[in-house]
Amino acid sequence: MQSLSAEEIVIIKEIVAKHVGSPGSAIPILQEIQKELGYVSTAFLRQVAELTETPASDLYSIVTFYSQFRLEPLGKNYIQVCHGTACHLAGAERITDSLEHETKTKCGCTSENGEFTLEKVACVGCCSLAPVVNVNGETHGRLTPEKTAKVIENLRNKGNEGNGDVLR
């Protein structure tokens, strides 16, 4: 099992301490951990369980129920393809095909070299720009398969700063 670094332990302790005495804070705690550390591993869960005196299984049940949580770290570039209604009608399927093809990554997975994570989301709220893709927190609208390929090419060329503070 993965062991935690001293830094990770400090971060987790600080986050848990902020929520002492506030009822129902398990989800906000896990959300903040994911914001800080990029994901919530089972090792993190155990640490939280110990600190909050909740069964680790309870926390695990939360993490697996809500789609926001991930048990694995993100790739360097985080790409969310909108599959909301408007984007679906505007051809989100083809945008997804094209993204999978360009990044050689399956939707819902991270590429082997850790360069890309592809994920489906439902409506990012820019329906009139459909089809829409969020790349590292930035919205790209009115996409075509060609434009999508360009977006990926630009990411590759940039040598890119990666997903920075959009980790969530």
């Binding site: 009822p23 129902g24 804070s25 398990a26 989800i27 309870d58 049940s61 939360i62 129920f65 809500y66």
Partner: peptide, 8 residues
């Protein structure tokens, strides 16, 4: 349920 910190 979710505000209470449980599965929704």
């Amino acid at each position: 349920m979710s505000i209470e910190g449980k599965r929704g």
